[in-house]
């Protein structure tokens, strides 16, 4: 598809997800409808077990919705065959994990270049260097993750997520393992990625500091997704 004619949204239409656990049916997500747009940082707030990870995995196509439809830039990920789905993820979706999850047997640069290779890009290393440059840790390219601080690890994880210039960034508790100052810096980076690079950033978190930077806030409680409005503030959320 021509990028210019491509839809700029991730659309959830009456999406439900249920699964069986210990003989009983668990409704992880109940009739969720939402639209996440490029150029915006969407925050999905909710306690542990509320369905945040289920929501992210549905968007990325790791699980099939029990009912409803998930469309990511005009594509229904779960309709794609395995090889194309993987290429779609590598090229169109960046992932940031709670515990960074960098591969400790590769250097920072190799961690980032690996994802560029997955997307079939030539000169993966030079793309990796550019991505590291953008998050300000190009000087750490040759180090192994074990030798990085928590903040540096998360920057490396963001570089890895952004190396293929994906339209969508999914962040699962991106500030959970960070100290206050480092967490704040990461929030600003995510905000900048959404605004300056025109990407859709969806962050599942319970970190209320993100509210001030979010363009759209969604609350997930017991599998029910509620919109708190695009201009919600920390105070209004708390209220």
């Amino acid at each position: 598809m021509n990028p210019s004619s491509e839809s700029r949204s991730i659309i959830l239409e009456h999406v439900s997800k249920s699964y069986r656990e210990d003989g009983s049916v668990v409704h992880a997500l109940n009739d969720a409808s939402a639209e996440f747009k490029r150029g915006r940082l969407a925050l999905v707030l909710g306690p542990s077990g509320s369905g945040k990870t289920t929501l992210l995995s549905l968007i990325a196509g790791f699980t099939q919705p029990t009912s409803g439809a998930v469309t990511v830039f005009d594509t229904k990920p779960t309709d794609l065959p395995p090889a194309k789905l993987q290429l779609f993820r590598a090229a169109k979706i960046g992932f940031i994990f709670q515990n960074f999850l960098l591969l400790d047997w590769l250097t920072v640069e190799e961690n980032v270049a690996l994802v560029a290779e997955f997307a079939g890009r030539n000169s993966a290393v030079s793309h990796a260097r550019a991505a590291l440059e953008r998050v300000g840790i190009s000087h750490l390219a040759g180090r192994y993750p074990a030798n990085l601080s928590q903040g540096e690890k998360q920057r490396a994880a963001i570089a890895r997520a952004c190396v293929n210039n994906p339209h969508l960034l999914l962040a699962d508790e991106p500030t959970a393992c960070l100290e206050s100052k480092q967490g704040f810096e990461i929030i600003k980076i995510l905000h900048s990625i959404a605004k300056d690079e025109n990407r859709c950033v969806i962050a599942a978190s319970h970190d209320l500091r993100l509210i001030d930077y979010a363009d759209g806030i969604f609350r997930l409680e017991d599998g029910v997704l509620k919109t708190s409005g695009p201009c919600a503030t920390r105070d209004s959320y708390n209220n």
């Binding site: 290429l87 779609f88 979706i93 999850l101 690996l114 994802v115 890895r160």
Partner: peptide
């Protein structure tokens, strides 16, 4: 196991 799951999430080709 965890690393391999991460690699899958990041879009590794099925043959990787």
């Amino acid at each position: 196991r965890k690393d391999f799951a991460v690699v899958m999430v990041l879009g590794s080709p099925p043959s990787f």
